[in-house]
Design a protein around this nucleic acid. Structure first.
Lengths: 341, 341
DNA sequence: CAATGTGTGATAGACGCCTATCAGGAATTG
DNA sequence: CAATTCCTGATAGGCGTCTATCACACATTG
């Protein structure tokens, strides 16, 4: 059985192709009775419009905009690279992708950047800050008919269409379990370093981590979270201080970026083998530190997958086609020295 | 700058579209000088044929065949389900996928099944046995112009185009490191159960596991591998025997399928909390056992991703388009109770 | 009853490429 | 020099859909 075409549907329904097209694309008013007949024919023939032909005929361009934090954070750089790679690849699919940078720690700046995005775009993917102002901007975009997906860090109460990223609470719990297991019942302190507590992903990781720590590993005492603003140098200072103040520190969970600073502080103190160090994001630096033994575990989200998923989701929304959830679930990658790619 | 079309290339090169087409698709002899001119124009305009339009025009169907082991092994069932799912989805892309089953433990049967595959197929994906006879069949297919990818289990010395699956030695090493860490320096025995040692993936996992165990965890003594033939009942018997014979068994690494049998044996012996149990493949059974605490860690490969990757690779080969390696790397998923999807 | 609106049919042209065929000039052969 | 062979141009028709336009029957309105 070959694929049915729009002409098959037309003749089966006893109408013209024009009418079938009107039903399919809501192009003009069609009598309910006729709509019924067409839809019946579509069901009977299991007709599905050929998307390739449709795209060709429409000659439509999809314009998407990615809004990422600026700065030198290695993961964000990887994400930006992934966007550029995909942008190049997608030109042959008639997809144009623009990349904009904005200060991620300022809700005002981000919000302004989003407000400024015109309706020239069919969709926007944004690494968002969970802030009322940003939420409003996202909602405004949605209301203007622009599809919005949040990337890496979500804004749950907004009207964004989709969140592309890992389950961060789950990632935090995973880190805690591994930390607890690796520490083998020893007693001591565990430190937590985050980029900023206004980033939803960081907060959720922290939440998941503390949840498991408190319930399952009473032998470990959790120190208050310190903020390193995802900046290598600041993080290094914070980590050095943490180490100096706590001689019985036996674990560090780094929720954000800047792992290199922590590794440097650990090595400077000569305590890299006493302290179990779990961090996020696989980069050149963290990979080296993992191989070298300073980092014990890296929890990663694959930037390439996230970007591709975001694009697929935005295209589905633009075409009003349902998406396959299982394909769009971003997985939590766990890397040990033994399975780094 | 919009995309260049074949007509742009033709006029730029001062030839006709027919000639450009001849150069692109090797349809007829073209003078070297002319080829040169056309290729130069292609480079200058950065012309890339529109694949959608090409597919539409060609009206060509891609026919692929998946050869999977028969039986009730949960992972293989999941794999078969994934194949059927994708087959359905791909009909709208003019891709027809057939699914065949064969006895995986018999090189003769598998080899015969492969030999019997005609050239009606553009490509074949096979869960292979590493056996000279199978290798010959794969080579024969390749020589007949059928693209072959190995799935899940590789045949390295064959002329297959690609291997779609995880790095099994790496998976074994990962299991070993986690086992060693979870056992916290305790002394005791660790048992290994495989499906069959003629399956390359099982052998490689075992290899990786032993490698790390011997070097890094001298406190643990490794028992000889036992074969369970990926069959729940046999595996359960083997596991029960293993437990009965070794009262100081503190870890089990299950390399193949049939995890449910081991879980049952552990629970029957009431030793599920004394023994660290690491297994492969996330299924309904293993998920439940992980939540219940009988299984400590599941190492998984995502069947859906593997099937989609295999299809992408086969299509690339059929279209003679280079593939993006980073997209086709199948990752090792590590699941704890905290991050099961 | 004329003017308007509504629902439908028919059809042409486009999207970018593939396939096929025919014609004819240039180069090679005997 | 005629007969081939080789290379190239030109062009038609098709793939399945979208977009747009015109025509026409019929119903509704004032």
């Amino acid at each position: 059985m070959v694929r049915a075409t729009i002409e098959d549907v037309a003749s089966k329904a006893g109408v013209s192709v024009a009418t079938v097209d009107r039903v399919l694309n809501g192009r003009a008013a069609v009598r309910p009775l006729t709509v019924e007949r067409v839809e019946k024919a579509i069901r009977q023939l299991n007709y599905q419009p050929d998307r390739l032909a449709a795209r060709l005929a429409r000659g439509r361009e999809y314009r998407f905009c990615f809004v990422l934090p600026e700065g030198t954070n290695a993961f964000m750089i990887a994400l930006a690279d992934a966007v550029r790679d995909e942008a190049k690849r997608m030109t042959q699919e008639k997809v144009v992708i623009d990349l904009r940078h904005t200060d991620v720690f300022s809700a005002e700046t981000l919000s302004a950047a989003l407000d400024q995005i015109g309706t020239v775009y069919d969709g926007v993917a944004v690494v968002a800050l969970d802030h009322p102002r940003v939420r409003e901007s996202i909602n405004a975009l949605t209301d203007r008919g622009v599809a919005v997906v949040t990337l890496v860090s979500d804004v749950p109460n907004s009207r964004r269409q989709h969140y592309v990223g890992i389950d961060n609470a789950s990632a935090g719990r995973t880190a805690a379990t591994l930390m607890g297991r690796y520490l083998c019942g020893r007693e001591g302190k565990v430190g937590l370093i985050a980029g900023s507590l206004s980033l939803r992903d960081h907060v959720e990781r922290q939440f998941g981590f503390e949840q498991v720590m408190l319930h399952e590993y009473p032998n470990l005492s959790l120190l208050p979270v310190r903020e390193g603003r995802d900046d290598g140098e600041i993080v290094q200072r914070v980590a050095a201080q943490l180490l100096a103040e706590n001689s019985d520190l036996i674990g560090i969970y780094n929720v954000g970026a800047g792992a290199r600073g922590i590794a440097a502080a650990l090595e400077a103190a000569g305590r890299q083998h006493q302290v179990i160090f779990i961090t996020h994001e696989l980069t050149d630096d963290t990979r080296l530190a993992l191989i070298g033994g300073t980092i014990d575990i890296i929890i990663n989200q694959d930037a390439g997958h996230e970007v591709r998923s975001a694009i697929r989701v935005l295209m589905s929304k633009a075409d009003k086609i349902p998406l396959v959830d299982s394909m769009e679930r971003i997985r939590i990658d766990i890397y040990l020295r033994d399975n780094i790619p």
